[in-house]
Design a protein around this nucleic acid. Sequence first.
DNA 1: TTAGCTTATGCAACTCTATTGCATTTTTAT
DNA 2: ATAAAAATGCAATAGAGTTGCATAAGCTAA
Lengths: 159, 159
Amino acid sequence: MDQRIIENLFNEYQLRVTNCRTDIMLFFLEADFALSAKALENNFPQYDRVTIYRTLNSFIEKGILHPIPSDGGAALYGLSDSIRKGAEQMGQATMLSDVEEVIPQTHIHDEHIHFSCHACGKTLCLPEQTIPKVNLPPGYQIKEVEMVVKGYCKSCTPA
Amino acid sequence: MDQRIIENLFNEYQLRVTNCRTDIMLFFLEADFALSAKALENNFPQYDRVTIYRTLNSFIEKGILHPIPSDGGAALYGLSDSIRKGAEQMGQATMLSDVEEVIPQTHIHDEHIHFSCHACGKTLCLPEQTIPKVNLPPGYQIKEVEMVVKGYCKSCTPA
DNA sequence: TTAGCTTATGCAACTCTATTGCATTTTTAT
DNA sequence: ATAAAAATGCAATAGAGTTGCATAAGCTAA
């Protein structure tokens, strides 16, 4: 994952390029599961807890990360679908013109299913799994749907 | 709602009958939405915060209440479907024999949809709305599914 | 009904997650 | 290079929830 791709992303979203933001974004791109503030604190002892929280909040405001509902006390965060897809495409691109095509998609909520594994404890975004349509009785106006499936993930289910 | 019905319920679930438990159970039965520990603290200043938390936990252990995923920091709790249904049936019953028919249904998870209203802030259980079946790619083993729909509830949607 | 065992309650202290204010440092545009 | 704007670190604070322990209340059986 090229550093330049991340810088470009931050420029698009009007976020200043800092070590903390770059490191955390790289970590999210390399992780295939959702992360907690605690996990980031452990992985980046060089940054203050407060800075990590502020970094997470700035990413959420821009729509780069989305919060994932969790049972435990601690919040979880996952990369937005558009960001991950964009970064993967850019990873293959070699020309700068390709890189500049990314358009910020703020406020677009990813309506994918989240999976929480009882065995390894990880929570994953399943970008390919769209949430099934819901029909509520008349009078309800649906704006957003959250779905968390719990069980055993691919790695933890015996084949 | 008869006090005797609640006493009977507690006996079935092997919970001692105390003022705090009775008051809180009554409050849940009368509320048509999910409650937070904070809401109970506000409504029952005569009971200690710790007692309220322990009361909630004892109800959850017995399966009388279920925790509801929420964005905010604070947990929400809803009455289990079987309890509310049982209490309503008993409310109509006049003979003690009817009342004694309640069977504790511990560890049965209610797979209904939850609705969270952006306007009034209330979270409701929708016992009639079952969660649609989900198909995940091979390798995932599903044990439990949570679904929270957000938008405007019946009371807050203009007709 | 009471004696005695068990469980629930209240209080104090504590843990953990997250936020806020403020001084200092870093980023970025000129 | 410089100055404005924004990010960082530190200290303090807020809120949710839990634990230990002494006391009070509920339950069981005689």
